[in-house]
Write a protein that binds this DNA or RNA. Sequence first.
RNA 1: AAGUAAUUAGUUCAACGGUAGAAUAUUUCGUUUACACUGAAGAGGUUAUUGGUUCGAAUCCAAUAUUACUUACCA
Length: 882
Amino acid sequence: MALSTQYDSKSVENKWYNYWMEHNFFHSEVDPNKEPYTIVIPPPNVTGVLHMGHMLNNTIQDVLIRRARLRGYNACWVPGTDHASIATEAKVVAKLKTQGINKNDLTREEFLKHAWDWTNEYGGVILEQLKKLGASCDWERTKFTLDDELYPQVIQTFVDLYNKGLIYRGYRMINWDPEAKTTLSDEEVIYEEKQGKLYYIKYPIVDSEEFLTVATTRPETIFGDTAICIHPEDTRYTHIKGKKVIIPVLNREIPIIEDEYVDMEFGTGCLKVTPAHDPNDKTLGEKHQLEVIDIFNEDATLNSFGLHYEGQDRFEVRKGFAKELQEKGFLIKEEVHTHKVGTSERTKAVIEPRLSDQWFLKMEDLVKPALKAVLETDEIVLHPKKFENTYRHWLENIRDWNISRQLWWGHQIPAYYYGDDKQDFVVAKNADEALKLAQKKSKNSALTLADLKQDKDALDTWFSAWLWPMSVFNGITDPNNKEFQYYYPTNDLVTGPDILFFWVARMIFAGYEYTDKKPFKNVYLTGLVRDKKRRKMSKSLGNSPDALKLIDDYGADGVRVGLLLSSAAGNDLMFDEDLCQQGKGFVNKIWNAFRLIKGWEVSESATQPKASKLALEWYEHRFNEVLISVDANFEKYRLSDSLMSIYKLIYDDFCGQLLEILKPAFGKPIDSTSYAQIIALLEDNLRILHPFVPFASEEIWQNIQERSPEEALIINNYPSTKETTPETSKILTDFNECIQVVTGIRRIRQEKNIAFKDTVSLQLCNHTKNSDRLYPILTKLCNLSKITEVAKAIEGAPSFRESGNEYFIPLQGLVNMEEELQKLKEELTYTEGFLKSVTKKLSNERFVANAPEKVVAGERKKLEDAETKITTLKNSIKALEA
RNA sequence: AAGUAAUUAGUUCAACGGUAGAAUAUUUCGUUUACACUGAAGAGGUUAUUGGUUCGAAUCCAAUAUUACUUACCA
């Protein structure tokens, strides 16, 4: 059957993916005789869909895992999804709303039922999409952060850390998301520059005609004011120290306090203090023992402290109250003011700082081994290293982690309350254990299960994700199990730098806390995928191409190559579909190279041409040379460079040179020796290409000859490098010279407009070496009638020099002499200029004295060459003019 | 506001202090024998700007500009 001139990714990709799955090639089992190579996937949100970031990230992981598999490691890539509590819960709430169901009307159990229904319907779609990309995950190991195996491990971690005294319950100022009605960790708050207003408000001073003016961006919080603060050294306000002011409209008296915290330069130098709604005001309030008045409901509407604004949203109140103040003469002016406003990462709602009882994890001690491992001992290496600084900065300034969320979709906090006092609670793995503890703690043996109330809150999603490399192997609940002992620590973690703190750093804490071991050796931080305008690709901007459509258009292999060609670790990727086009073109090129070889008729009797033998020998060494650099780049996680070397090896060396030399004359067969060798070399190409281009490489591999499943490329082996010797590098330089000469001849042919069908002859002057290697290849590639060696230069004939030899192509009057003369003169001028600059350099005594000998020798050589060239050019000009 | 990095061909990126290179796009000329995704060849650059160190700077130092990220936060 004739093979198509176009590689057809669509028909090929599913076929081989199914084949690999059928034969269980992705699956890994504990095998003490093999070294493990483990990667755990950064679990995508269970309800998510594949976007460009996932594609990049998972392509990199697949390249690493496939290469490890070929190199004989027991490669294990563990896939899974994350329950993403806040994101998923928000989606479920929104969906219920469209059905007219309000979350607040449901019980926890009813709501969770809806959430599970949703998860079962949409969950795992993204994993199916990863299959399209070619991801060779061990799907039998697929995990979900909320499933029965992982849930108890999260709970046990909480209990353990509580018992160690690292988890505590505290009344603190936290980040409140009024839309999701939950707290958020500091990392989940995104500060955005927003334009607001600065309102200047008059506060009348008690027993005085005077008033203070306070500048605020949040007039609606005035209901919670409990003081006005001035700087103790502010001379503008010396005379009113110790007095009180009246809050406008509310007519409540509050004290004027002094604190150095106040910035005299900002606004009027007077700060209104609202301890319930600002972290700094809270600190001030504690210091000066101020009353704390919480004026907001959960959804950031005003509560009864808001008087006639009760029930209105904070932003409406801001407008309405400003208007009222103005009407009553208390508002002096409004200024436009840009400032940063904290918003929820998930819901985008403006964060309301709020005081509440929450669970916290102490970070101070957990952080220490994580700092050491990355910054001192290099037990864990970040690629690229530049992220170490950000990592250090964050860890050194870390605050306690708020781990409770007022959500239902997640791991319910295993704290059980049994009494009315805040301290009447115990922490335990389950209710039965909790009961025993509670009876003991309360000294009341009459307590029953019915008296226990479990904490309603769920844990932060990252509190389960940070255990991921351990929990997927049951390492928390059963640390001695064989799998955990074998696969952990894992090798590589591939993820975006945006979750360096959310996730990567925390996994490192957890790893050391639980196992005294690092969770992984290398962290490969990909760049963000951006569009041509350098904007981050995101759903809201609508600038992210449809991942599956890309695969459809360019093939998974094409997209993989496109993504990897230009994405060094840590560098953002400016995505352009042209890259995928290039990837697709590359795959097609290999396909056609295969088609060419496959189409050759093989003859047992034909003898191997000298040129073929030389070229095959050369390619073997060239391949080895490239493989050495590919391996070195992999060591440094420079995947793009690895791929580019392979790209050029196949495009230029294999297709451009080797196949052109081997190609038999039209209608003639190829000798069987060359054929066997070219097939072997093609197979080696496919082996190193497979991690990047899994589908097409397997397709070609299987088309070369019939293979049993055990012979599939995916589980074949990786070529090993050979040592280079002076002999091998001589072969490489000699061939390189051939190519230079070929290029020289072609250039002259083109410059002189000599049609390809016309043969030319070649004359070599001062010939010293190499005819054995040179002549067969020149004859094959350059359509030469004859090659002659001459002792003396042929004046006037076009020429070039290569490795000490001079090459001439006599043209027998086919050339326009005047144009020729012009060109030669231009070249002479240029070379003389070049000579001048080199001479200048060499006459600089300080250069000759200080520069290394090698460099000076190089310059001398240049000088010499330029002088020779000038002589030759002058002679040629003379000959033409004559 | 501070910290970190980046700034090189139209574009995406390379380049131990020693003549700035690839890939791609573009241009020209080819192709009856794998490759509407083929072959060959040219063109392209004051390496963001200004100083400094050095015999010599894209590279090291300082400042400036722009961009991105991270952290912090001003009422």
